[in-house]
């Protein structure tokens, strides 16, 4: 495994990005972990869109008198590219965030199971996922929650002065997830994934 001295903390070089991408690709080449990534990414995306309309989901999708097809119609139309709740940029961001969330979880599970690393021993990797989850949650809830909280204190103008009207939270979440993916890849450096070595350099 790579020593602390040789480990990068930020993906500042092209080789860092190549390493991150290769590690993720190798993990996802294992079918079970690809399924984990897909399901957890979908779950993350679902959580993101649900938090934008909790009363609607609670009242009519989970509970309420509607038949199953109507519940699914409402839920589906809350998603980016299916409904109109998100513009193009936000939709792309949410898809990216959902995808990275899934990749993060798959990589961490692989690292813990296949490399037999404990949670304590892979604190960097666990920290990466926690940080990534925080970022993803921030992206989903951030602008909505902040708008609500700021409005209660008469400071809604703070959100208005943000150049992207709160989309900054989604971008921050995406950045955190990228870092999390990088830290996970760094934590797996020196081992093997799907029989292929993860280079030390």
């Amino acid at each position: 495994m790579a020593t602390r001295e040789s480990r990068s903390w930020l993906p500042t070089q092209r080789k860092d990005w190549r390493h991150m991408g290769r590690t993720a690709r190798l993990v996802l080449s294992v079918p079970i972990y690809a399924a984990v990534a897909l399901l957890s990414g979908l779950a993350g995306l679902t959580l993101f869109v649900v938090t934008q309309n909790i009363p609607l989901v609670r009242d009519l999708v989970i509970f309420g008198p509607l038949p199953i097809e109507d519940r699914l119609t409402i839920l589906a139309n809350l998603f980016p590219f299916i409904g109109t709740g998100f513009d193009l940029v936000t939709s792309l961001l949410l898809i990216a965030i959902g995808t990275l969330t899934g990749v993060n979880i798959a990589m961490l599970l692989y690292h813990l199971r296949e490399h037999r690393v404990s949670l304590g021993g892979s604190s960097g990797s666990v920290g990466g996922v926690i940080f990534g989850t925080l970022g993803a949650g921030c992206a989903a809830c951030g602008s909505a929650v902040v708008a609500g909280v700021l409005g209660l204190f008469g400071a809604g103008w703070l959100l208005a002065v943000l150049p992207l009207e709160g989309l900054e939270f989604a971008l921050f979440g995406l950045l955190v997830l990228v870092l999390s993916t990088f830290w996970l890849a760094e934590g797996m450096r020196g081992g093997e994934v799907a029989g292929c070595p993860i280079d030390l350099n």
Binding site: N53, L56, D59, L60, G64, T73, T84, A147, G148
Partner: peptide, 26 residues
């Protein structure tokens, strides 16, 4: 502090609340 927010009523009874730019199907 959010907008738009919609409150839906059916025959005078409250149904649910909808937030954001949701479409006709919703």
């Amino acid at each position: 502090g959010e907008t738009p927010v919609f409150y839906l009523f059916r025959e005078g009874e409250f149904v649910t609340e909808i937030r954001g730019n949701q479409n006709l199907d919703v």
